[in-house]
């Protein structure tokens, strides 16, 4: 589904990803762990198509198609979804307007009809309820006045509405207390399916107790230095990144 080969990415003339390789098959959940500055967030933003990320070498294909030339909205329409580490607050744009615009834009490009207002409202209510999102929250502007946990839940709500093929979760656990973490993890787990893949980026093993990955990769200095199963996450938790990095070097 997703194949990243020998990828080199620079941001503001700094080399961040240096020979990054990853292959994600349908239905697989890959965890990417690593210390600060190892390039995890760069990987997430690069996949979503954020401007300012210069690809100097390598390739990224999604369903066999080169996506590096595609604009962020085109990638989203193809089914790539990034749950932001720091979701943006957009004053003046009502949450429901935002959700509806996004959903209909994506449906339109997939050749599906736009949802009627009652159908849309029903869908949002149902998904929001699953995530413990208060209806009152959705009456506000996008993420404005939301707590850290509410913002992350809102990301998962968007993800469940847009039904992407590839979900990239960038430190979705950061800023969450244990209860919120469970709610968010449940939301993510509900979205697991044989046709949907996920890349879960995190510092800590804790999230992976709830979202159990098929593969765990450890990143350091812009590339993957070790791969394994869920046990690798626990090993990291016990021994720390430094030991793993030292072994890999």
């Amino acid at each position: 589904m997703l194949e990243i080969k020998n990828l080199h990415v620079e941001v503001a003339d700094r080399k961040i990803l240096q020979g990054f390789n990853l292959k994600v098959g349908p239905g697989q959940v890959h965890a990417i762990m690593g210390p600060n500055g190892s390039g995890k967030s760069t990987l997430a933003y690069m996949l979503a198509g954020k401007p300012g990320y210069r690809i100097t070498d390598g390739s990224v294909t999604f369903d066999g198609e080169d996506i590096l030339e595609l604009a962020p909205d085109e990638r989203a329409a193809k089914g790539i979804f990034l749950a932001f580490q720091y979701p943006m607050e957009i004053p003046g744009v009502a949450s429901m307007v935002f959700l509806r615009t996004a959903l209909n834009a994506v449906r339109k490009r997939r050749g599906e009809p736009e949802l009627s207002t009652p159908d849309f409202l029903r869908l949002v209510r149902e998904k929001a309820k699953d995530l413990g999102i208060d209806q009152e929250m959705l009456k506000r502007a996008v993420n404005v006045g939301f707590s850290g946990g509410e913002k992350k839940r809102n990301e998962i709500l968007q993800m469940s509405l847009l039904e992407p093929k590839l979900c990239v979760l960038d430190e979705t656990d950061s800023g969450l207390d244990i209860d919120a973490l469970k709610v968010v993890a449940d939301g993510v787990n509900r979205l697991r399916s044989p046709s949907r893949s996920m890349i879960v980026i995190t510092h800590y093993q804790r999230l992976l107790d709830y979202i159990v990955p098929d593969f765990v990769h450890v990143m350091a200095k812009g590339r993957i230095v070790r791969c394994g199963g869920p046990d690798l996450a626990r090993e990291l938790e016990e021994r720390g990144y430094a030991a793993i990095e030292a072994e890999a070097a």
Binding site: G49, K50, D73, A76, A77, V97, T101, A102, A105
Partner: peptide
């Protein structure tokens, strides 16, 4: 952020201008 949700650029701009 809006683009990453599949909203085309002009439409995303319109949302922000409207806001």
């Amino acid at each position: 952020y809006l683009l990453a949700r599949g909203i085309p650029r002009k439409q995303a701009e319109a949302l922000l201008i409207q806001a």
